[in-house]
Design a protein around this nucleic acid. Structure first.
Length: 423
RNA sequence: GGAGGGGUGGCUGAGCGGUCGAAAGCACUGGUCUUGAAAACCAGAGAAGGGCGACCUUCCCAGGGUUCGAAUCCCUGCCCCUCCGCCA
């Protein structure tokens, strides 16, 4: 959520920054809502103040043994007036909060301008792609019988996968490797969290109210959704709380399945397991002192990069342009891994600083030691990494030209010492 | 699924339909004392929102209701705890 006060005072510059995202802020409507809100709020508070004073007087009169009948009569239809004013005020406030909740985070000044992914800016590359002296095969071909997409389609439909034997083990091994690295080397606390969450939780991180179509909802009485990422339950751990300053930064790592409807992506990435309705991800979440969130973004991104480096997978880091930013992010660095069969870099991690955007929605604060007052924390998260896509990258980058795939050195311990996959 | 007990400030925990944002303790901040610290004593201090400001409003799980007035009474829902049953 954008700071309502800043929205009022700096409406021009905020509108300008939202324009970079391709969002035209309806300034006239916002100002009209604000004017009504202010008028109704003052009216409600004035009436409530009168009621309070009158009730207190009646209480005092009663305690003194005086006749309270004239005082009660003098209250008149204050109650009805107040109820009507409250009704109007609630209506404006709901309209206003719906309007404000639908506004994305204005991009940080360091975010490159642009409309879509073609305007993203490459920041750095690590390792040049291996120049195979043969035609590289894609992950579906390499995985052969260990990847059973027909079985998945039979039992669940399209965009699901069944992994068998060595491929299932590689998938599990990658997950363990990632978690271990973040816990043991980067100091994250591992957490296990629910995969179903309620509406309030999704509003907290920004998936709702705007993007309900992207989620899988649970049918029936329970108003719950399958999580689209661990970011949702993990970041919400600190919702509606005031943290001690000494607790910061909080660093959580969680491994969860992620569920996405992929509405609007029909026909996109339909080959193989690149884009699935269900996939596994190891997610990094940080809750930090607002003064330190930009350093934290670099640090968190480096933690994700460590996984790629240990696996010796060529990748590049790109800064998302304003038009390609997610709803809640003020800035995002994507890590893109090289996929030989596609001959291009593809997203494998997305690391973002949300500043106080999510914290405001969640009412997540820390006690500022200098003022003793609560301030909003800053939240960040990033994939470290998307497991299914890492699996693709390992298969394709570690193929030997004869249809065999070697096990990256870093994974040997997670694969029973095997040096190659018997797919 | 059955029976019972609860949800009050950062935490623990009192609270009679009225002057209750709410006792007390812990934790916190400032001061006194001390070479320093601790202890003790004194004082301050909840959260959200509005207003340039003096100030004002809201908040005792949530939503309704009764009332001039609700933390307190009534209804509904949610959550937690204990016991029984079932169960990985």
């Amino acid at each position: 959520m954008i700071d309502p006060r800043r929205l009022r005072l700096e409406i021009g510059s905020i509108a300008e920054r939202l324009r970079l995202r391709g969002i035209e802020l309806d300034v006239a409507r916002l100002e009209e809502l604000e004017t009504r809100r202010k008028r109704m709020q003052e009216e409600v508070e004035r009436l409530r103040n009168r009621r309070r004073a009158a009730s207190r007087q009646i209480g005092e009169a009663k305690a003194a043994g005086d006749d309270i009948a004239p005082l009660v009569a003098a209250v008149g239809n204050l109650g009805d007036d107040l109820a009507e004013a409250v009704r109007q005020f609630d209506a404006v406030r709901d309209e206003l909060s719906e309007f404000v909740n639908a506004l994305p985070n204005p991009p940080d000044d360091s975010v490159p301008p642009g409309r879509d992914e073609t305007d993203n800016v490459e920041l750095r590359r690590w390792q040049e792609p291996v120049d195979f002296n043969f035609e590289p095969r894609d992950h579906v071909s390499l995985a052969s019988a260990s990847l059973d997409l027909e079985a998945a389609a039979k039992i669940a439909g399209s965009r699901f996968s069944v992994l068998r034997g060595p491929l299932a083990r590689l998938h599990r091994g990658l997950t363990q490797f990632m978690i271990d690295t973040h816990v043991l080397e980067h100091g994250y606390e591992e957490v296990y969290v629910p995969y179903l969450v309620d509406r309030r939780t999704l509003v907290g991180t920004g998936q709702l109210p705007k993007f309900e179509d992207d989620l899988f909802a649970i049918d029936g009485e329970r108003d719950q959704f399958l999580i689209p990422t661990a970011e949702v339950p993990v970041t919400n751990l600190i919702r509606e709380s005031i943290l001690d300053y000494a607790e910061l930064p909080l660093r959580f790592v969680a491994h969860t399945p992620c569920f996405r409807s992929e509405a609007g992506n029909y026909g996109k990435d339909t080959h193989g397991i690149f884009r699935q309705h269900q996939f596994e991800k190891v997610e990094l979440v940080q809750i930090v002192d607002p003064a330190k969130s930009w350093d934290a973004l670099d640090e968190l991104t480096a933690h994700a990069e460590t996984i790629l480096r240990k696996l010796e997978l060529p990748y590049r880091a790109v800064a998302l342009c304003a038009g390609d930013l997610g709803f809640a992010a003020a800035k995002t660095i994507d890590l893109e891994v090289w996929l030989p069969a596609e001959r291009r870099y593809r997203e494998i991690s997305s690391c973002s600083n949300f500043l106080d955007f999510q914290a405001r929605r969640m009412l997540a604060r820390y006690r500022n030691p200098e003022t003793g007052r609560p301030n909003y924390v800053h939240t960040l998260n990033g994939s470290g990494l998307a497991v299914g896509r890492t699996l693709i990258a390992v298969l394709e980058n570690y193929q030997d030209g004869n249809g065999a795939v070697h096990v990256p050195d870093a994974l040997r311990g997670y694969m029973g010492g095997s040096t190659r996959l018997d797919l």
